[in-house]
């Protein structure tokens, strides 16, 4: 008999004694049993209620949207893989005088190995470039592209965000499908791809191009390739990784671009306008 049971049981006995009712031992036992059983049921009921509430909360949290199609996810995966290979095999050539580059070449077996893998990375990049260009001509691709076009709102969002950072405004900008940060990343890739693939092709097939273009074009290609490589690396590691993964909101890893899923909470926080749009569309469908 626990405390609660004892308290209720004693209350009942006391009440009965006050009324002057005689209590037999049998009755006492019955009361005890009744109290215990009723309490048990009560607790169970409460527990179930709590569980239900939690389940509901969880369900709400687990309610997710498909943010990126498999096509986009694969494009990103190959691009990311290509970039990582290119950075690892390329930077030691740029910084060949550094001790770490020397160490890198020592453990990987020399520059020929790096050149081979650099070309594999380059091939991945070219594949993505072609793939994405074709993708833009599909219905889905075109609508995504339209979403990514810079608008006046992006500039206003940017100003508002800065104000928000500085504490001058209490309101965060409300982003659509793509924030100005994501649009920046998208368009930066165009700049990078054109320069890197262009200059890279010149250098890859230098034996052919030596006969076609003046030597100084190849010199420019080498310089641009090396310089843009550093810019791209810094932009990816500092800017892209911070905004996508390392910012306190989502640290340390944001799986959305790999799984395609984004939960309702984040959707509401990061892309409220798109969320509203989706709800409207769903309503429309239901009405039809």
């Amino acid at each position: 008999m626990n405390k609660e049971e004892k308290r209720i049981y004693e209350d009942i006995i006391n009440d009965m004694e006050k009324e002057g009712i005689e209590i037999s031992d049998e009755l006492k036992k019955k009361i005890k049993k009744e109290v215990r059983e009723r309490l048990k049921k009560e607790i169970e009921r409460e527990l179930q209620k709590l569980k239900k509430k939690k389940k509901k909360e969880k369900k709400e949290k687990e309610e997710y949207f498909i943010r990126f199609s498999l096509n986009i996810r694969l494009q990103h995966l190959i691009l990311a893989l290509g970039c990582i290979i290119l950075i690892i095999t390329g930077l030691p050539i740029k910084f060949h005088e550094a001790g770490w580059a020397e160490f890198y070449f020592k453990i990987t077996g020399g520059i020929q190995v790096s050149r081979f893998f650099h070309r594999i990375g380059a091939t991945l990049l070219v594949i993505v470039a072609i793939w994405h260009t074709i993708y833009l001509f599909t219905k889905k691709g075109w609508s995504e592209f339209k979403e990514l076009l810079p608008r006046k709102k992006d500039f206003l969002d940017f100003l508002m965000n800065i104000k928000y950072f500085l504490g001058l405004s209490k309101e965060r900008p409300r982003f659509g499908r793509y924030s100005y940060i994501e649009k920046f990343d998208y368009w930066a890739v165009y700049w990078g791809m054109v320069i890197m693939i262009g200059s890279g092709t010149l250098m890859w097939f230098h034996n052919f191009f030596l006969g076609v273009v003046p030597k100084f074009i190849l010199d420019i290609a080498k310089e641009a390739h090396s310089d843009e490589a550093l810019l791209a690396t810094l932009a990816i590691v500092i800017w892209h990784w911070y905004n996508a993964h390392f910012n306190p909101e989502i640290f340390p890893f944001n799986p959305t671009i790999f799984t395609g899923k984004i939960d309702k909470e984040r959707m509401l926080h990061e892309h409220p306008i798109e969320y509203e749009k989706i709800l409207k569309e769903q309503k429309k469908k239901k009405e039809e």
Binding site: F209, L210, G211
Partner: peptide
Amino acid sequence: TCGKCHPGASENVAKGKYHI
């Protein structure tokens, strides 16, 4: 001279600076 290693080399290789 360049053609010793780079078979495609033409007079284009003279259009530019060396040891830059």
